[in-house]
Write a protein that binds this DNA or RNA. Structure first.
Lengths: 105, 105
DNA sequence: ATTAACTTGACAATATTTGTCAATTATAGC
DNA sequence: GCTATAATTGACAAATATTGTCAAGTTAAT
């Protein structure tokens, strides 16, 4: 019951499924293979634009990939923060509060 | 029934309660008053270190202030992102999953 | 109108992120 | 063993974002 946890694993798995080389995908992305290699192994973060492109290149669901991407970005922000989980919950509450406010508009 | 929504409002309210000037607090923080002014009005983000110092200077609950600070940082990351709320939820799930994993350690 | 507190915006300094490149390691086929 | 190709690594450079300073401009009270 293995799961794709990180966006990097998702990307690598799909790239290999499609039989593409780092070099090939990197060329389409317009970066050096070194970067894509690092993204796939989680050593570097991708830019959102690159995630969008990768979804297209690898024929992955774009929304799912972006959600994955954003969630990693969020987690990165609160890494090593003891109060991170509480902050996440507060952030959610704030979003919800704003949503209900939108009724006015 | 007014609420303190932003960290800036909290800081300003408390500073005024204590009868302190921007200049005075800024000096303790070791930045120009311009920065503190901007932080209080939400035009700039504070650094975490500054939040910690401000909690001390203004005698505010440090944990609460940090939670507030982190939640704003999180929200900043997903601003303008349609999928932000979903990403937040995914981020929470991931944290929880990691928490239960910790049992092994 | 003078003064003190605060605000604003242009710019500089710093820090972080993103990228390139060359050298190295890994892997597969002779 | 060699040789080829793919991928990884790390040092460095370029680009971007953040944080800060400063001086000029408001605002508000006297």
């Amino acid at each position: 019951m293995k799961k794709n946890n990180s966006i990097g694993e998702i990307l690598r798995k799909r790239r290999e499924e499609k039989g593409l080389l780092l070099r090939q995908v990197a060329a389409l992305l317009d970066v050096d293979t070194a970067i894509l290699s690092k993204i796939e192994r989680g050593e570097r973060k991708a830019k959102k634009e690159q995630i969008v492109q990768l979804a297209k290149i690898l024929e992955l669901n774009q929304e799912d990939l972006i959600i994955q991407f954003l969630s990693e970005r969020i987690l990165y922000e609160i890494q090593d923060e003891e109060l991170g989980e509480k902050a996440l919950k507060v952030a959610e509450q704030k979003i919800k509060k704003n949503n209900t406010k939108q009724i006015k508009d």
